[in-house]
Amino acid sequence: MKIDKNYELPFSPERVFAAWTSSETVIPPATRMDINPTVGGHFRLIIEGTEHNSVAEGLFFAVEPDRHVRYTWEWDRSGEITQIDVRFEPADAGTDLRIVHTGFQKQESLDMHDSGWDSYVEALSVFLKEDGSVEPH
């Protein structure tokens, strides 16, 4: 089972890639990010709350600056390890962002991530509009 999403963002591929791969880009519900965007490097999204703590973790196995990343993804060591493939293509309006997320074992998990991607990309756009500090690598 897979998710295949396309978004058009009014920012350069360099800015979108920089935000996507930066530990400084914290999009709620995340409270902290820890990202090392190199092949073999890690990805950690951390949610710390008063009632619930959660971590999504993965490893990068493809990194092409400003163009492409691919990494694994697992919530709270659930055993469901999926793969996320993200492409950042130049477009007249900025960036065509394509996310292909594969390897789901349960429809419930796929549905949750499907709506989660829409929310994440919308919040990422707001972050990029409001925060000029994320610079390309």
Rank of each mutant, 00 (worst) to 15 (best):
residue 89 E to M: 15
residue 13 P to F: 01
residue 105 Q to E: 02
residue 68 H to Y: 13
residue 68 H to A: 12
residue 52 H to Q: 10
residue 71 Y to R: 10
residue 25 T to W: 02
residue 71 Y to I: 09
residue 8 E to S: 15
residue 96 D to H: 06
residue 59 L to W: 09
residue 109 S to L: 01
residue 9 L to W: 02
residue 95 T to K: 11
residue 67 R to L: 07
residue 100 V to F: 05
residue 27 I to T: 10
residue 58 G to Y: 07
residue 29 P to A: 13
residue 76 D to T: 12
residue 77 R to E: 06
residue 68 H to V: 13
residue 103 G to S: 12
residue 13 P to R: 11
residue 11 F to M: 06
residue 51 E to A: 14
residue 30 A to F: 11
residue 89 E to T: 14
residue 67 R to N: 07
residue 76 D to R: 08
residue 40 G to R: 10
residue 24 E to C: 09
residue 29 P to L: 13
residue 104 F to Q: 01
residue 103 G to M: 04
residue 51 E to L: 15
residue 106 K to R: 04
residue 60 F to T: 10
residue 106 K to G: 00
residue 12 S to G: 06
residue 87 R to G: 13
residue 27 I to N: 12
residue 104 F to E: 00
residue 40 G to L: 09
residue 104 F to N: 00
residue 12 S to Y: 02
residue 24 E to I: 04
residue 55 V to P: 07
residue 76 D to P: 11
residue 10 P to W: 00
residue 35 I to M: 07
residue 37 P to H: 06
residue 101 H to Y: 09
residue 76 D to Q: 09
residue 25 T to I: 04
residue 29 P to Q: 06
residue 85 D to Q: 04
residue 40 G to K: 02
residue 51 E to Q: 07
residue 84 I to V: 15
residue 90 P to F: 00
residue 83 Q to D: 13
residue 57 E to S: 15
residue 97 L to C: 09
residue 70 R to A: 12
residue 76 D to I: 08
residue 86 V to Q: 09
residue 30 A to M: 14
residue 19 A to G: 03
residue 90 P to K: 03
residue 68 H to M: 04
residue 34 D to M: 03
residue 23 S to Y: 00
residue 87 R to K: 10
residue 17 F to R: 03
residue 45 L to E: 07
residue 102 T to Q: 12
residue 30 A to Y: 06
residue 23 S to A: 07
residue 49 G to A: 11
residue 85 D to L: 08
residue 85 D to I: 14
residue 96 D to T: 15
residue 109 S to W: 00
residue 35 I to H: 02
residue 25 T to A: 03
residue 78 S to F: 08
residue 93 A to M: 08
residue 104 F to P: 00
residue 50 T to I: 15
residue 85 D to K: 09
residue 40 G to D: 04
residue 32 R to T: 14
residue 62 A to S: 04
residue 100 V to I: 13
residue 77 R to N: 15
residue 77 R to L: 15
residue 62 A to K: 10
residue 26 V to M: 14
residue 11 F to E: 07
residue 12 S to P: 07
residue 52 H to Y: 01
residue 70 R to S: 15
residue 32 R to M: 14
residue 64 E to D: 05
residue 105 Q to F: 00
residue 106 K to F: 00
residue 26 V to W: 05
residue 25 T to G: 09
residue 89 E to F: 01
residue 70 R to G: 15
residue 30 A to R: 06
residue 88 F to Y: 08
residue 79 G to D: 01
residue 68 H to G: 11
residue 16 V to Y: 02
residue 20 W to C: 08
residue 36 N to D: 08
residue 22 S to R: 02
residue 29 P to D: 09
residue 58 G to K: 08
residue 95 T to A: 14
residue 45 L to G: 12
residue 9 L to G: 08
residue 8 E to V: 15
residue 61 F to I: 03
residue 52 H to T: 11
residue 106 K to E: 00
residue 35 I to K: 06
residue 102 T to V: 04
residue 37 P to S: 12
residue 20 W to L: 08
residue 24 E to D: 08
residue 61 F to C: 11
residue 24 E to Y: 05
residue 62 A to V: 08
residue 75 W to K: 00
residue 108 E to S: 10
residue 20 W to K: 06
residue 13 P to L: 05
residue 68 H to Q: 10
residue 62 A to Q: 05
residue 49 G to E: 05
residue 73 W to Q: 04
residue 30 A to L: 13
residue 53 N to S: 04
residue 90 P to I: 03
